[in-house]
Amino acid sequence: MALDPQKLRLHVFEKTGIKVDVDDPIFALVALNEAVLEEAVERHLARLDGAHAPAAATGAAYVPPPGARPIPTSHEPFSRRELRLLAAAAGVAVLTAALVLIGQAIFSKPAGIPPAKLERALQTLDAKTRAAFEAELTR
């Protein structure tokens, strides 16, 4: 595809309102960019043609290069391997949550009753019960 300077000049003017002369150095940059892009596209097309050539010559289906992984065509949402990994991740999550809960149960202390509230509760008891309760607290 050849570069049409007049069309590009008109496009720049329509988009920006800036008049660009066809002798402007920016056109050299655009032409250079176009040449580099065209060369890169040709290289990639040649690589693709080279990869397909052996299979096309024998009439066989396309064989990917070594190390390439095929794209799965299964209609199942997950493969067996993915299901095993998902189950393992779920198991690890459950075990971790259980470990955290067990750790909290072992290492946390109950809050207890604040002393001021305990003193008020003791004052509401009769003398005999209060004396027995205080005796148990001092043991």
Rank of each mutant, 00 (worst) to 15 (best):
A60M: 02
K109E: 09
A55F: 00
K7P: 00
V94N: 10
D4R: 14
P110I: 02
F78K: 13
S74D: 13
A98R: 07
A40T: 15
A31C: 05
T124A: 15
I71W: 04
K128I: 03
P114L: 08
H11Y: 08
V30L: 11
A35P: 00
E136Q: 10
L101E: 05
G67N: 05
V63W: 00
F78Y: 13
T124G: 07
A88K: 11
A46V: 06
R80V: 15
P114S: 11
R9P: 02
I71H: 03
L32P: 00
V92H: 13
A51R: 04
L8M: 01
A31Q: 10
R84F: 05
V100R: 02
L32C: 01
K19A: 14
A31N: 04
E14P: 03
V92W: 13
E34S: 05
L118N: 09
L101W: 03
H11S: 10
F13G: 00
K109V: 09
A31P: 01
P66A: 02
G91K: 01
R139T: 15
Q6G: 08
E134Q: 13
P66K: 02
A40K: 03
D23I: 00
I18V: 04
S79A: 14
R84A: 11
L125H: 12
F27K: 01
D126S: 13
T129S: 15
G50Q: 10
T58P: 00
P5D: 04
E76I: 06
L45E: 12
A132V: 04
A97P: 00
G103Q: 05
E39H: 07
A28S: 10
R47N: 09
A61T: 14
P110E: 04
F78H: 11
L85Q: 13
A31E: 14
K128V: 07
G17I: 11
K117W: 03
L10C: 07
T58C: 06
M1C: 11
Q104E: 07
A90K: 12
E134M: 10
L85D: 14
R9M: 14
A60R: 04
L37S: 11
R69P: 03
L29R: 00
A61M: 14
F27A: 03
L3M: 15
T73H: 10
L3H: 07
E34F: 08
D24N: 13
G91H: 01
I102L: 15
V20T: 01
Y62A: 12
D49E: 11
A89H: 03
D126M: 06
L29D: 04
L122I: 14
A57T: 05
E76Y: 08
L122K: 11
A116N: 06
V30A: 05
I106N: 02
V20W: 02
L83V: 15
I113C: 09
